[in-house]
């Protein structure tokens, strides 16, 4: 995500001393070369023409964008990506909130540290390894199908992979740490005295949660959900490992356009469209929720959220 360049304190004259331009310029240069320029190239390529059986022609045409609108397949994949991102977000919220809550309110710092290490360290492993781990657990001689058969839920161990639920489970697993970490901070910031005040005024634990903790962690919930949603929109590896073509997200299709079909312009087009959709979603959420997400706030400075 974009980060702000640190501005150095101004001198008496009100202008930055020359040497400090260097310090400011480094992040700016990095941002431009590693982010803005490739993005611009992508945008430009999306207007080129692809040649079947050949390379591409450097002409400016909108035919790739037209193709996206005309061929229902690609809009369908976009919708599928949105759907699975939504399911993943919901899943990680439902699983993540209780975990984050327990972590934030427990007195035992040993427990807190141990679980935190577990949660954060799972992020050190690449998606691929974690995805394959689920492939192993969910195939017909894997732990979960065998368990399900033992418990009588199925007659015989049924392989869940490749498949939709294998993909969802692995996505929730992979993105859960992001949700937990965001929620943890948010919940921790709720003064425990507020909960005590609620209890003192007659609210039981569940009522206290509903009326005090939950509303006060609204920002964290929205931030965490947005983060997981955006990350989920970009999954490429997991659908390929754990899903069949019907579970391919738009990102997989984009990858295939470039690596399998040698159609770089159309791949670029789909990428731009995907990006615009995600950016639009973020903008709408921030606006509606009035939430201070990633330092982007919908409320003006000075106003209380």
């Amino acid at each position: 995500m974009a980060h702000e360049a640190q501005t150095e304190p101004a001198t008496d004259s009100g202008r930055l001393p020359p040497i400090k331009y260097l310090v400011v310029s480094y992040p700016a240069i990095a941002l431009v070369t590693l982010f803005a320029v490739p993005l611009l190239l992508l945008f430009v390529f999306s207007f080129f023409r692809n040649i079947s059986g050949g390379y591409l022609r450097y002409v400016v045409t909108a035919e790739n964008y037209v193709r996206f609108l005309q061929e229902p397949l690609y809009l369908d994949r976009l919708v599928f990506s949105l759907r699975i991102a939504a399911v993943t977000t919901l899943g990680s919220l439902v699983l993540g909130y209780p975990l984050a809550y327990r972590l934030a309110t427990t007195d035992s710092s040993l427990l807190r540290r141990a679980v935190m290490v577990l949660v954060v360290s799972s992020l050190w492993l690449t998606f691929i390894i974690r995805g394959y781990a689920w492939a192993v657990l969910l195939r017909s001689n894997g732990l979960f199908p065998i368990l399900a058969a033992e418990l009588g839920l199925t007659d015989a161990p049924v392989s869940l992979v490749p498949g939709y639920w294998a993909l969802v489970v692995s996505m929730v697993y992979v993105f859960l740490p992001f949700m937990v970490l965001t929620l943890y901070t948010s919940i921790k910031n709720v003064d425990h005295e507020l909960r005590e005040a609620a209890r003192n005024l007659g609210a039981g634990p569940i009522t206290t949660f509903r009326h005090v903790t939950l509303p006060l962690t609204k920002d964290g919930i929205i931030s965490g959900s947005l983060l997981v949603f955006v990350l989920s929109m970009g999954v490429y590896v997991l659908p390929r490992i754990l899903g069949n073509p019907p579970q391919w997200t738009l990102a997989v299709v984009i990858g295939n356009q470039v690596t399998v079909e040698s159609n770089v312009p159309f791949g670029a087009t789909l990428s731009i469209i995907l990006m615009l959709v995600v950016v639009a979603l973020i903008a709408v959420t921030v606006r509606l929720a009035g939430v201070d997400t990633f330092g982007v706030s919908a409320t003006e400075e000075g106003e209380q959220g």
Binding site: N50, S52, G53, E71, L73, D76, R77, N244, P245, P246, W248, V253, N256, V260, E261, S262, N263
Partner: peptide
């Protein structure tokens, strides 16, 4: 066919395997 009609074939193929 796979060369001259590359895009056409790929489009039909994607529709086939994804919409199943």
């Amino acid at each position: 066919m796979y060369v001259e009609r590359q895009e056409f074939i790929n489009q039909l193929w994607n529709e086939l395997i994804i919409d199943s």
